[in-house]
Amino acid sequence: MTGQPAARPVSAELERLVGLSIVPRRHYGRWVAAAIILLLFAWVVKAFAEGQIAWKVVGQFLTAPAILNGLVNTVIMTACAMALGIVLGVLFAIMYMSPNPVLRGSALFYIWFFRGTPLLLQLLLWFNLALVFPRIGIPGLIEFRTIDVITPFVATLLGLGMNQGAYTAEVVRSGILSVEVGQTEAAKSIGMTRLTTLRRIILPQAMRVIIPPVGNEFISMVKLTSIASVIQYSEILRNAQTIYYANARVIELLIVAAIWYLAVVTLLQIGQFFLERYFSRGRGERRARHKASPGNGAGGQP
C-alpha cells in the first residue's frame, strides 16, 4: 500500500469481509471415520440378524425362572459383597491412618495380601478353607464343620468382599486425605472426639471423592460375581450356562445374560448420579432451595 493514512480503505475492506458468506471448515477425516464405523456397525447388525440367533429364544429365556433366580443371586451377591467391602474398606482405612502401629500394621498386611493375590485364587482358598481349618468356632463352646459353614454363597461373599475391602480401603484413605486439616481442627475446637470428627465431618466430605471410584467398583462387582460360577454359586451367568449345556442355545443365553447385566448396571449408574449429586452439596453447583430463604425467622424445621 501507499504511505497514506489508510483508515478509509481498511474499513471498506472490512465492510467487504463482513459481507462474505461463511463456509464451515470441512472435516474430511471425520467423514471417513464415521463412514467406516457405520459400515462396521451395519456389518455386525447384519451378522446378528442373519446369524443363527433365534431372537424368540432370547425373549423366551429372558424371564425364565432359572435366569431370574440367577439374576436375584447376582444382585444379592453384588450388594452383600460391596457392603462387606465398604465396611472393611472404611475400617481398614481408619486403621491404616491410626497412630497405633499394630492397627496400622494389620491394615497394611490386609491390603498387601488381598491386593497382591488373584481374586480367583482367594475364592478357591475360601471355598477350600476346610482343608486348613476342618472346624471353626470357639473350641468347647460352639463348633461347626467348616464344610457346613463355607457354602458357595459364603465363600463368594468372603472372597469378593474381602478383596473389595482392600481396594476400597485405599479409596477411602485418599478420600479422607482430601479433606483439609482445617476441618479436623474446627471439629476438635468444638469438642469433638476423633471418632465423632470422622463420622460427622471427615467421612461425609470424603464421600465426594470416594463415591465415583466406589460407584465404578460397584459396577465391576456386578460383573465380577460371575467368577463365582467356578465354585458353584448359581449367579446369572452360571444358570445361563447350565441352560445352554442342555439346549445348545449358547449365543441366545449369553445375550439374555448380557441384557440383564446391562439393565442392572444402568440402574446403578443412575443411582451413582444421584449419590454424587447429594454428596457434592456445598461444593460447586448450588442445590435447589427447599424454601424461599430471605428472612424466614426461627422455624423449628431442621
Partner: peptide
Amino acid sequence: DAEIARQRLATGMVFQRFNLFHHMT
C-alpha cells in the same frame, strides 16, 4: 482423647481461614 475433647469446651476458636464445615449450611 475424650477428656481432652471435654477440656476443649472451655475455649472457642476462630480460624484465619474460617474452617466452616463445607457440607453443612
